[in-house]
Write a protein that binds this DNA or RNA. Structure first.
Lengths: 336, 336
DNA sequence: CGTTTTCGTGAAATCGCTTTCACGAAAACT
DNA sequence: AGTTTTCGTGAAAGCGATTTCACGAAAACG
C-alpha cells in the first residue's frame, strides 16, 4: 500500500467527495446564493470531513483579491513611543480577522510618492488601506483616484471626500470644561497642541465653545499655544500663573503637557487641585500612573480602529461609507 | 486602433523584450547565479523599461512561499497599553520590508491550540513567525515540529531549543546597582516584577549578582516581590521604608512600580533622590515624563525587533541561528 | 401549446509565476 | 581524440483557486 503524501486537500477532492464540480465548490465556499441547497450541504460536509482550508495565494491569483488590508503608518521617529498606534492597530486587526481579512503592517515614511510603500499600495497588492498618522494628503489623493478603498484615521486637513474616523475632540474638550465649571472653577486657561494638527484645533474649538456656553471669559492671554511637549506645558503654565493670579484651572490638549503644567503649578507653591485644577487629554498610561492621578479625556482608541476596519469592509462590499466620529469620555482622577 | 488595456506587465512581455525565455526571467529575478551576464542585463533592462513589479500572489502560488512573516501577539487586554509592542513590531517591520518580506499582524489569544490563529500558522500561509508575549509554549512546540521557522521574543521558560531574542535584563540590573553603589548608596532594596516572568527573574538575578559583587547585604526583607503594578511599588516601598530606616535606594523592575515607590517615599517625608534613590526599568514614556525624571534601564526595543527579523530571514535561508541577547543601557535622570 | 427567459450547473480557460526536465554545447576527464 | 560531466537554457507542466461560457431543464410568457 502506497503511503499517501499528506498534503492539503483541494477543490478537486472536495468536488469528488461531494459529487459536484469544482465550480460549484467555489460557489458554495464564496457564498453564491444560487446553488441548490442539497449541493451546498454536500460541499460543506465534504469540507468539514477533509478539514479543508482555502489556499489564499491561489484564491488571490485567480480573483485578484488578496484578502489583505494595509495599515499604513506614515513613519515618524516618535510614532511608536505612543501606545495610541498599537491600540488602534489592535482594534483594526480584531475586526479584520473576524472577517477573514488580514492586517498587513506598513510602517514607512510616505514623504515620497514613489517610495516603496507608495508603489506597493498602487500596485494593488492589498484590497484596501487604512492610514494612521498621515502627514500629507498627496498619496491618498492619488490612491483614491486609482479606486483603492481607503479610510483615514483623524480628520483630514483638506476638504477631501475621504471617509475618516476620528474622536469627538471638540465634544471631549467641551465635557472637560463643563466639569471644571460645574466644580466651581472660574478662570480656566487652555494650553493647545500643535495647531497645525486638526485634533489640536478641534480641542481648542471645543474649549472655546464651552467657554462661550458657560459664560467664561477667554482673553487671548488665557490661551497658550503649545506643541504637545512636557516643556510646553510646564513653561506655558508658569507664564499663565504669573499673568493670571486668579487662575484656577488649566485644560491641556494632551496628558504630557498637563503633567508639565502640574509640575509648574506645584513649583509655584500652589496645590493641585486645591488651587488649580488640571485636565489632560488622551487618558494615557501617563494619566493613569501619575501622582496625583491626572483627570483626562479618554478616546475610544480600539473603537476607532474597529470602526475604520468596518468601514473598509463596507467599502469592499461596495457600500457607501460615511465618516464616523466617536464620543470621548472624561475620566475623573485627582487633578480636577 | 484598439485601445490597449493598461495592465501590469508579466514575464511574457519581459521575456519577449529581452529575447529570453520566461524561465530565464524567473531565474534572473530570483537571483539565480548561473545565468549568463548578458542575459541578466537584458532582463534587468526590460524590467526597468516596463516598470515591472512582481505579482506576489502568483509567485506565492507557484513557489509555496508567501513572503509573509507573522508577528504574533498572544493577546492580553493590557498588551497595547504598553508601547513596547508597537516599538518592537516597528523594528521587525523595518527589517522585513528591506528584505521584501511583509509583516502580517496576528493579535489574538493563543490559549487554544485550535484557535483560528493557531490553525492559520499551521496551515503554512506564512513563511515564518515571530512571537511576542507568549504565554504558553505549547503552540510553538507544535509549530516547531512542523518546521515553521520561528523566533521568540523574550527568554522562554522551558529549556526549548527555540531561537529567541531578549534584552540583557541581568546586565541592565547589574549596571543599575553599580551606579547606585558608585554614588554612595549603602542599603539598596529591590522590588521585583512578577517572578513567573523570565524577565523579572533575570532582573532579580542581576541585582543579586551585583549586590554580591559589591559586597552589599541582601537579606530577604530587602527584596519585595511585586507584580509590575503601581500599587505594588507604592505598598512595598512603604513597608521597606518602615522596616529599614537606613534604606537609601530602591531598584524596581519596571518604571510603573518605581513611580509608585517615589510617591511612597515622598509621602513618608523623605526626598528623592536626596534620602532615597530610585531606579526603574524600561525607560518608558513614564520615566521620561515623570517629575522628578526617573532614572531607568533602557532596552533597545527596536533593536530586539530588528534582530528577531534578521534571525527569521536567516532561518529562511537555511542558516543556523543562535539566540541573541542585546545590551541594556542605564539612563540617568533625577531620581538616582 | 409553442416560444422565450431564467436558472443552476460543469467544462475548461485563466491568473502569473516557479520548477522540473531534457537537450545541446562546452569543459573536464581518460 | 573519445568519452563523460558540467552548464546554461527553453519548453512545458504545474500551483489551486475563480470565472466565463454554453448548455439543458424548468419557469414564464404570449
Amino acid at each position: 500500500m502506497a503511503a499517501k503524501q499528506k498534503s492539503r486537500p483541494t477543490y478537486a477532492e472536495i468536488a469528488k467527495l461531494a459529487g459536484v464540480s469544482e465550480a460549484t465548490v467555489s460557489r458554495v465556499l464564496n457564498g453564491d446564493p444560487k446553488v441548490d441547497s442539497d449541493r451546498v450541504a454536500a460541499v460543506n460536509k465534504a469540507v468539514d470531513q477533509l478539514g479543508y482550508q482555502k489556499n489564499r495565494a491561489a484564491a488571490a491569483l485567480a480573483s485578484g483579491r488578496t484578502g489583505l488590508i494595509a495599515v499604513v503608518i506614515d513613519d515618524d521617529l516618535s510614532v511608536f513611543q505612543d501606545p495610541f498606534w498599537g491600540a488602534i492597530t489592535n482594534g483594526i486587526s480584531k475586526v479584520l480577522m473576524e472577517n477573514e481579512m488580514q492586517t498587513l503592517l506598513l510602517v514607512a515614511p510616505l514623504d515620497n510618492i514613489d517610495s516603496p510603500v507608495a508603489q506597493y499600495l498602487q500596485r494593488g497588492e492589498v484590497d484596501g488601506a487604512i492610514f494612521l498618522q498621515l502627514h500629507k494628503d498627496t498619496l491618498i489623493n492619488r490612491l483614491a483616484k486609482q479606486n483603492l478603498p481607503l479610510v483615514v484615521n483623524g480628520t483630514p486637513h483638506t476638504n477631501n471626500p475621504f471617509a475618516y474616523v476620528d474622536s469627538d475632540n471638540a465634544g471631549g474638550a467641551f465635557a472637560a470644561v463643563r466639569h471644571l465649571v460645574d466644580s466651581g472653577r472660574k478662570v480656566i486657561a487652555k494650553i493647545t497642541g500643535d495647531l497645525s494638527n486638526t485634533a489640536a484645533e478641534q480641542r481648542l474649538e471645543g474649549f472655546l465653545a464651552a467657554a462661550n456656553e458657560f459664560g467664561l471669559k477667554t482673553p487671548k492671554s488665557l490661551i497658550a499655544q503649545g506643541d504637545w511637549s512636557r516643556e510646553a506645558g510646564y513653561n506655558h503654565a508658569k507664564k499663565l500663573l504669573a499673568k493670571h493670579p486668579t487662575l484656577d484651572a488649566i485644560f491641556c490638549s494632551n496628558d504630557v503637557m498637563a503633567l508639565g503644567a502640574v509640575t509648574a503649578i506645584q513649583e509655584a507653591g500652589r496645590s493641585v487641585p486645591g488651587d488649580v485644577a488640571v485636565v489632560g487629554f488622551d487618558d494615557s498610561y501617563l494619566a493613569q500612573n501619575s501622582h496625583p492621578g491626572l483627570t483626562s479625556v479618554r478616546q475610544d482608541i480600539a473603537g476607532l480602529g474597529a470602526e475604520a476596519a468596518k468601514m473598509i469592509l463596507a467599502k469592499l462590499r461596495g457600500e457607501e461609507v460615511h465618516s464616523e466620529i466617536l464620543p470621548c469620555e472624561l475620566v475623573l482622577r485627582e487633578t480636577a
